[in-house]
């Protein structure tokens, strides 16, 4: 199937700014679905609120554009009630880790079979450029005219500590790598997290003098390095890219099925 067959073309043009990285994430994600050959009817995409969240309107899957921060809570209801469905949950950094931080760590803790995609542009884009919990210290934002003093989360470390059984990180510069990680995340049984650094030239790049979209994308190649690479070994301050966690553990819905089996036996 062609990529465009996964899109709801009548709802285009999309609302993302020129140069936004989110379209690249959508591209990587749809290629992953296509290469895996998953039926469109078997996929539910649940999203929250923000630029990233609009992705769910554009894809020809079952789509649930929910509340700010709550995408994983909605997804948990869908998945547990109908475990045969594949749940894809793209979220922005504020969506996933500020207002939705609680749901993020608890979905990871349960190891419920959902794929969370954190589209990290380090800013609240839709509301016009306020700092997020992933902006980091010393950044400029409309709510940080004197620069941020807030420390940022490391999504990978947070997901690992909370119990996610698949954790990966990549960027929009590495679109084919993103497809590869997303394929593995989707096929992984359990809670999977893929963080994708995605440029926001309009609200982040401009204010923080990181250049236009091409410069921001090119910069992702400079500031990151593959896990196990010589580049990372020689420059440990670079942001690691790759698969950080890939382990097997009991999955929530399968464990609940065992409860049902036990409870039904007890009743007879």
């Amino acid at each position: 199937m062609a990529i465009k067959d996964y899109l709801r073309q009548r709802f285009f043009p999309h609302m993302w700014c020129p140069g936004c990285g989110h379209g690249t994430v959508l591209n990587s994600l749809l290629r992953a679905v296509e290469e895996l050959g998953i039926e469109k009817n078997d996929i539910v995409m649940t999203s929250g609120i923000g630029c990233s969240a609009r992705i769910s309107g554009y894809v020809d899957f079952h789509s649930l554009h929910s509340l700010h921060g709550r995408a994983l809570a909605f997804a948990t209801g869908v998945k547990l009630s109908q475990p045969k469905l594949k749940l894809l949950v793209p979220m922005g950094d504020g969506d996933a880790l500020a207002i939705g931080g609680n749901h993020f760590i608890h979905a990871a803790r349960r190891n419920i079979d959902i794929t969370a995609i954190v589209m990290n542009n380090k800013i609240y884009g839709m509301t016009g450029g306020q700092y997020s919990p992933l902006s980091g210290v010393g950044k400029k934002a409309t709510t940080a005219p004197y620069l941020t003093i807030d420390n940022d989360f490391d999504v990978v470390e947070l997901a690992k500590a909370a119990g996610a059984t698949f954790v990966a990180r990549t960027t929009t510069f590495h679109a084919t790598e993103a497809t590869d990680f997303l394929k593995k995340a989707i096929m992984h049984k359990g809670f999977s997290v893929v963080e994708i650094l995605s440029q926001c030239p309009t609200h982040y790049g401009r204010k923080n003098k990181e250049g236009d979209a091409p410069q921001m994308v090119a910069n992702y190649d400079k500031i990151t390095a593959r896990l196990g690479s010589k580049k990372l070994e020689e420059n440990p301050a670079l942001i690691g890219r790759g698969i950080f966690v890939d382990r097997q553990a009991p999955e929530y819905c399968e464990e609940y099925d065992k409860i049902i089996e036990y409870a039904m036996k007890g009743r007879k």
Binding site: T46, H62, L64, S66, L67, R70, A73, F74, A75, T76, G77, V78, K79, L80, S81, N102, H103, H106, Y256, I259, I260, Y262, A263, M264, G266, R267
Partner: peptide
Amino acid sequence: PERGGKFIQMEDEIASMCAIIGASL
């Protein structure tokens, strides 16, 4: 679970409400 249904204790009240909406769909 005795009748094949599902129960989940969520992380908070908000998540509980969101989860039942997802399940209803």
